[in-house]
Amino acid sequence: MKYTEEHEWLRPEEDNIVTVGITAHAAEQLGDVVFVELPDVGKTVSKDDEVVVIESVKAASDILAPVDGEIVEVNEAIVEEPGKVNDDPEGDAWFFKIQVEDLSALDELMDDAAYKDFIG
């Protein structure tokens, strides 16, 4: 698993597909999630594009695309039940799957230990 400074986790799957979600730390800090808006499947995105809107009882925030690629699947279950993001952020409540040209784009991201360090 890899992590961004924006508190996303990335899990490489087969065929250059990467599953993306937010970390337990981020979910905890956000508080109760009440609304999630996901991108359209098939959309091509660039790193740092706003791809997801997430709102908690407190505020709205964006999730930025962690890498360039094409959105190949989104998790409608968290649109139906945004609270799942708090219940299982690093499991069932993934946000989207993105297909990348080259998995080496993930190399510069933090690993487990580095992310733990990062959040202190």
Partner: peptide
């Protein structure tokens, strides 16, 4: 994840970064 500050409507309550979250429902 980044705070939305791209429009006036949201800017007021939004300055939200998970590292330094507002934490305020008010």
């Amino acid at each position: 994840m980044a705070g939305r500050d791209d429009d006036d409507a949201n800017a007021r309550y939004a300055h939200l970064e998970t590292r330094d979250i507002c934490g305020c429902g008010v």
